[in-house]
Simulated assay, not measured.
Amino acid sequence: MEIKSSTKYFAELVGTFSLVLFGCGTAVVAGVTTGSGPDGVGLLGIAIAFGFTVVAMCYAIGGISGCHVNPAITIAMLTAGKIKANEALGYIIAQFIGATLAAGVLYLIQGGDPHWALGEWGLGSNGWGEGYGAGYNTASAFIAEAVFTFLFLFVIFASLSKWGNSTMAGLAIGVTLMLIHLVCIRITGTSVNPARSFGPAVFAGGKALGQLWLFIVAPIVGGVLAAIVWKMVDKQRA
């Protein structure tokens, strides 16, 4: 039985909503130690939150939409010929809506904390440079986002291929995202996902919104390169 496109789009919206709410929510609510609460979960906890959310969503909606929950993944799949252009557009729109709704919910929740202020890169926004993370420059941020998105997509293509173990693909993909976060959080806050960056930046504004271009361009570049490389690998192995 063929799944309706609208059902796929809704699944992508819910999946992306969950990724941003759980991931960014962990970073904002529980990521650091504050005077108003218990010890934070730290970088490892944030990485686990993003990775495990992807694992959960892969098994929840993977059979419906493929669980892209990421425009870079959808564009890479389009490049690899695994999704049609009109459907890819619907996926991307749903992903951006889901991420924005999640950031809005997180904003409303945090508004109830008397000790919370939105800040320059609020709601788990991605960024780089002075005042953000370890202060890495633009080149480092772009390279990190492009290279790690490339690796992320390569794992996705390989895991879901006829040579991979598709039953364990969700776990492999989620663990890979967790590992990426462990490296990239102090560089860019870790995006590898334009929608994940877009949602919080809309509410944070300022530098978060001004730097958004990198978190759209670099992941797409990395994803498209991964699709091209995987097509070459797949063709040779075939």
Rank of each mutant, 00 (worst) to 15 (best):
L118F: 11
A117P: 00
G124A: 04
H115L: 05
N137T: 05
A141L: 05
I109G: 02
G129T: 02
A134T: 11
A117T: 15
Y136P: 00
W116V: 01
G131D: 13
W128D: 02
L118Y: 09
T138D: 09
G112F: 12
G131S: 07
H115M: 12
E145G: 02
P114E: 12
L118M: 14
I109D: 02
A134V: 14
L123Q: 06
W116E: 05
G112T: 07
W128I: 00
S125H: 09
A139V: 13
E120C: 00
G133R: 08
D113P: 00
Q110H: 13
A141D: 03
N137S: 10
Y136R: 07
G111V: 03
I109H: 12
G122S: 11
N137D: 15
E130T: 13
G124Y: 04
A144K: 00
N137E: 10
W128G: 00
P114M: 05
G131P: 00
H115Y: 13
G135F: 06
G129A: 09
D113E: 09
G129F: 07
G111R: 03
H115S: 15
E130W: 08
N137M: 06
S140N: 08
F142S: 08
S140G: 11
E120Y: 05
G124H: 08
T138A: 15
G124R: 11
E145A: 01
G131E: 12
W116F: 13
G129Q: 09
W116H: 14
N126V: 03
A139S: 14
G119F: 10
L118T: 04
G133S: 07
E130Q: 14
Y136K: 07
I109F: 15
S140H: 13
E145D: 05
E145R: 02
G122M: 03
G111H: 08
T138E: 11
G124N: 10
G135S: 04
W121D: 03
I143V: 15
L123S: 01
E120G: 01
G112K: 14
L118I: 09
G119R: 10
E120P: 00
F142W: 11
G131V: 01
N137F: 08
Y132M: 05
P114A: 13
F142Q: 08
G127N: 06
G112I: 01
E130S: 11
E130M: 06
G131L: 03
A134P: 00
N126M: 04
E130P: 00
G119I: 02
L118S: 05
W128S: 01
E145T: 01
G119T: 04
D113M: 10
P114Q: 12
I109C: 05
G122E: 07
D113W: 12
H115N: 14
D113S: 12
A117C: 06
S125F: 03
Y136C: 04
G124P: 03
P114N: 11
W121G: 00
Q110V: 02
A144Y: 12
A139C: 09
E145P: 00
A134M: 15
A141Y: 05
P114D: 14
T138W: 15
S140D: 05
G112P: 05
E120Q: 13
S125W: 11
